[in-house]
Simulated assay, not measured.
Amino acid sequence: MKERSSGRMRAPRSFLAVATAGIMALALTACGGTTKDSANSGGGAGAASTASANPNAPLKEGIKLAFLPKQINNPYLTLVDKAGISAAGEYKGEAKEVGPSDASASSQVSYINTLVQQRQDAILISANDPNAVCGPLQQARQRGIKVVSYDSDTAPECRDVFINQAASEEIGRSQVKLLAELMDGEGEFAVLSATANATNQNTWIKYMQEELKKPEYAKMKLVKIAYGDDDDQKSFQQTQGLLQAYPNLKGIIAPTTVGIAAAARYISGSQYKGKVVVTGLGTPNQMRQFVKDGTVEKFQLWNPNDLGYLASYAAAALVSGQITGKQGEVLKAGRLGERTVGANGEIVLGPPFTFEASNIDQFDF
């Protein structure tokens, strides 16, 4: 089993300024979304728990948490998990990261089973597939283990709460709006996604397609949704294939940090630089060189440090009984302040933020 634990990570040097200005509300969270937007009055816990929350209960000490990302070598999720591990130190908890090296649908199952055997107090998961992990997660919950999904949701009945980096609809629609701005509202474009079953990616793409139905996008055409499986080389090759298959392609949206970097790297060294727009979701450090060399004009994200921090505090609050995942409950999240649990047990970090040449050097993550 691959396992990583760490201490505190250095926060972005501009965090305080950004937080004070309120530019990013909860700032940049990177690759996640929710599958459900239904008005479910209860949280994800559903019938699994009928206990009432005690918002004044203190956070328990010695809580054992485990972060289970889609894949352990994903740079974005590494940032998220390290921040969550560091946050656990604030409430005297113990946290670690474990996970597979591939992002296949079933790759996380054995890790969940092991964490149950280890008697973790909470499992925090970015799901490769919303349903493939449900069986073992439900077994974990039956044993009293709290389950928090983050970045990419499970089916709601398989977890207690979902920490969403930004509202899924807002992410999907904002990606199309940004691309339309960069493409002057016309031309063919493609989406370079992660895996075909990724909950967040598919939800964002659904809202992209809905946004495209508006009359202002009548001259824009989505010609292909390609999948790079959150693998750098495959995403690079998919970008090459898209440009060969669609000679009139004018833009690529890659709503995944691995995909946008791979697409930008290919475009930057090709004849398409300056002709094909690349945008999507990426981290500033990852995308800085491509912004500086003119390959990418604008892209979006949120703060992965804040996403991991919020998820960590949500897990601690669940274990301590401060919240149960019911709609309307208030989560006290350390330096991030309070967040209200929404429908289906969803807790939203904040809106996406747009990075460009004028502001990218203000961030370091």
Rank of each mutant, 00 (worst) to 15 (best):
P100L: 01
G350E: 04
E61Q: 14
V278G: 07
K273M: 11
S106D: 12
G135D: 03
I123Y: 13
I347A: 08
L28T: 10
K146D: 03
L124R: 00
I360V: 14
V176W: 08
Q175G: 09
K213Y: 03
D230L: 14
A132H: 05
S168G: 11
K275L: 11
P130K: 09
V348N: 09
E329K: 02
R173Q: 14
P58Y: 02
N344P: 08
T279H: 07
Y91N: 02
F162S: 03
V223G: 09
L281R: 07
Q322I: 07
L65N: 04
A105C: 08
I323A: 12
T239W: 00
Y227H: 10
D153K: 09
Q322N: 13
G274Q: 03
A87D: 02
D121S: 10
K250E: 01
Y76G: 15
K96Q: 09
S106I: 14
E186W: 05
P352D: 00
K224S: 13
Q327E: 14
Y207D: 00
L124N: 04
L222D: 02
G93S: 03
A27G: 14
L307R: 03
Y217I: 06
K60V: 05
R335L: 15
G7M: 05
G32D: 05
K250P: 06
P352S: 01
V133E: 15
A19M: 12
T195E: 08
